[in-house]
């Protein structure tokens, strides 16, 4: 066990070092290799292969039921993959020996339903995991929490409880909560789908800013505008397969697959 920890720590250090040097810019931070997932008899993912590079913003599009959310949830093992590999910073997270909690603290996730803790105010929502998982002191956790709340524009809402905040504000607190853990990758699972249209922009603005700051992001969304403007790469999924992937301008203007074209057509 201690060996593993040491190795992992070394690996972390290596990765960090490599990232600084830019030496491993070609080495994907996250590799999805032949990922399958079934719920009982229902096959949802039929072999997904995606590489995500450091600092890249990948937007996953697709009709509902295409398996994009399931794919995202497999990345931090909220769903257990049926088969296939997921390599995160060189580590196979589908390996049963992998400490999944250790993986998760380096991977932030934002949910469609925000999932803020209703019994804690915004500040403590952001503080809780810092203290319990990273072992930060209350002072340290509060400092970071206030920093992150300011980052999402909610510094003055720190003592508000979730039900005193609008949906958009709640989602921004949820983003701050994930960011406070200083993740290496952020996963967004339809982060704006539950919001009233007029509240979507605030959240997208935060996400856009995050992308500009170089955060590696995997974004499942229906927001075509966001995909077009912010994504480095767009992945189109349908029926458990990756149908097509490419740069947004290429995929939006000149899709290779008729399925992609049809989907984009139906959206617009």
């Amino acid at each position: 066990m201690s060996d593993a920890v040491v190795n992992e720590a070394e690996k972390d250090a290596e990765v960090a070092e490599a990232a600084q040097k830019g030496a491993s810019a070609n080495e994907p931070i996250l590799r999805i290799v032949d990922l399958h997932k079934s719920f009982g008899q229902t096959v949802v993912l039929r072999g997904i292969d995606i590489d995500i590079h450091r600092g890249e913003v990948v937007v996953v599009l697709g009709p509902s039921g295409s398996g994009k959310s399931t794919m995202l949830r497999c990345l931090n093992r909220l769903e257990e993959p049926t088969s296939g590999k997921i390599l995160f910073e060189g580590q196979d997270i589908t390996d049963s020996k992998t400490d999944v909690n250790d993986v998760r603290k380096r991977m932030g996730m934002v949910f469609q339903q925000f999932n803020l803790f209703p019994h804690l105010d915004a500040l403590h929502n952001v503080m809780l995991a810092q203290q319990k998982v990273l072992g930060r002191s209350a002072e340290e956790a509060e400092r970071v929490a206030r920093e992150q709340l300011a980052r999402v524009g909610l510094a003055e809402r720190a003592d508000y409880y979730p039900d005193e905040l609008s949906g958009g504000q709640q989602q921004r607190v949820a983003i701050a909560r994930a960011l406070a853990m200083e993740p290496h990758v952020m996963l967004f699972d339809e982060a704006t789908s539950a919001l009233d249209p007029e509240l979507v922009r605030g959240v997208l603005d935060v996400m856009r800013e995050l992308a500009e700051q170089g955060m590696t992001m995997v974004v499942v969304t229906h927001e075509m505008g966001f995909a077009r403007d912010v994504a480095d790469r767009v992945v189109f999924m349908e029926g458990g397969y990756v149908v097509e992937e490419g740069a947004p301008e290429q995929l939006f203007t000149n899709p290779k697959s008729p399925r992609t074209a049809e989907f984009l057509g139906s959206i617009n």
Binding site: N76, L78, N101, N115, F117, H119, R177
Partner: peptide, 27 residues
């Protein structure tokens, strides 16, 4: 209690016991 609460807590790296005691039980 909504399953999302557990998922949110686990996605932040909290283990099962931490999730139970700091997130689920207080609610």
């Amino acid at each position: 209690i909504n399953k999302g609460q557990t998922e949110a807590a686990r996605s932040l790296g909290m283990n099962g016991a931490q999730t139970m005691f700091y997130v689920i039980l207080p609610q």
